[in-house]
C-alpha cells in the first residue's frame, strides 16, 4: 500500500513538473523565419496588401473535438481587426486595403488563405520543430534556407496588381471546456499522461506577390492573448507581427496608407 502511494506521489510530482515545463519547451521552439536573400525596403516604399485576418474560435470538448462558436468568432474578428488597424502604422510600408471581395474573388481569397494555413502548419511541423525535419530538407535547414511558397498564382489575388507583398494572418483558437481542463489535470495526476487543453494557433506571413514565395513568417501553435477580448487581441496581433522585417523603431517615420 505504501509502495503504491509512493508511486502515485512520484507520478503526481513528475506530471506537475511536466505541466509547468511544457509551455516553456514550446516557446523555446523557433517560430520566425525570413527567406534567404530577402531584405525589406527600408525607405517605406514597399506596398503591402493586407487582407482581413482569417479568424476561427470555438470550444474544445472533453473528448478533444472542436466545436466552432459563431459568437466568439465574431467578437474575435472585430477585436483583431481593430488591433491590426492600430498596429499597421508601425510597419515601414504603404498599406494597401481593398474592399471586401465578393463572388469568385472572395472564393479565391478563401482558397489562398486556407493554403497559407496549410503551408504555415507544415513550416511549424517540419522546419521549426527541429526534431521532425524532413530528410530532403535537412541540408537546406542546416544552411538556414527557408523556401516555402504559395505559387505564382498569387498574382491573380484581388488587389495584387496594386501591391508588392500580401500580408496573410490566420488565427485559430480552441478554448478547452471545463471538462477538458479537468481531464487534463486528472490524466496528468492519476496516469501521468499529458492531455492538451486548448489550441491557440496564429500565423502571419508576408508573401511576394510576383513569385508567391513566403519572405517572412511568424507562426506558432501556442500564441498568447484571449482573442475574445480587446486586450487579448492586441496582445495576439503584437505577437503575430513580432520580428516583422519592416517594423519602425518607436520614434521612426511611418509609411503612408494607400487605398
Amino acid at each position: 500500500m505504501i509502495r503504491r502511494s509512493r508511486l502515485l506521489a512520484v507520478l503526481v510530482f513528475i506530471s506537475s513538473v511536466f505541466i509547468v515545463a511544457l509551455p516553456s519547451l514550446t516557446h523555446a521552439q523557433e517560430r520566425t523565419a525570413v527567406r534567404q536573400g530577402f531584405s525589406f525596403p527600408n525607405d517605406g516604399s514597399a506596398r503591402i496588401l493586407v487582407f482581413r485576418p482569417d479568424v476561427t474560435v470555438g470550444a474544445q470538448s472533453t473528448g478533444g473535438l472542436f466545436e466552432p462558436r459563431a459568437d466568439w468568432t465574431e467578437q474575435a474578428r472585430g477585436h483583431i481587426g481593430t488591433a491590426l488597424d492600430q498596429a499597421l502604422p508601425t510597419l515601414n510600408a504603404q498599406i494597401v486595403r481593398i474592399q471586401e471581395p465578393i463572388g469568385s474573388d472572395a472564393q479565391l481569397l478563401r482558397d489562398y488563405s486556407a493554403l497559407f494555413g496549410a503551408v504555415s502548419q507544415s513550416i511549424i511541423n517540419y522546419q521549426f520543430f527541429v526534431g521532425n525535419r524532413l530528410e530532403t530538407k535537412k541540408r537546406d535547414n542546416r544552411e538556414n534556407v527557408f523556401e516555402w511558397t504559395l505559387g505564382e498564382g498569387v498574382r491573380t489575388l484581388p488587389g495584387a496588381d496594386q501591391a508588392d507583398y500580401a500580408l496573410f494572418i490566420t488565427t485559430e483558437d480552441h478554448y478547452g471546456s471545463t471538462g477538458r481542463k479537468l481531464l487534463q489535470i486528472f490524466a496528468a495526476a492519476a496516469v501521468g499522461v499529458g492531455v492538451t487543453s486548448g489550441l491557440h494557433a496564429g500565423y502571419a506571413g508576408l508573401v511576394d506577390l510576383q513569385t508567391g514565395n513566403l519572405v517572412w513568417i511568424n507562426a506558432d501553435f501556442a500564441m498568447g492573448g484571449d482573442v475574445r477580448e480587446a486586450d487579448g487581441a492586441v496582445r495576439r496581433v503584437s505577437q503575430l507581427l513580432e520580428d516583422f522585417p519592416g517594423t519602425l523603431p518607436i520614434s521612426g517615420e511611418r509609411g503612408g496608407a494607400a487605398q
Binding site: A118, V119, Q121, S122, N125, Y126, L134, T136, K137, W148
Partner: peptide, 8 residues
Amino acid sequence: WTLDGELL
C-alpha cells in the same frame, strides 16, 4: 511519402 509535409 511527402516532399513538403503531408498537408502539401
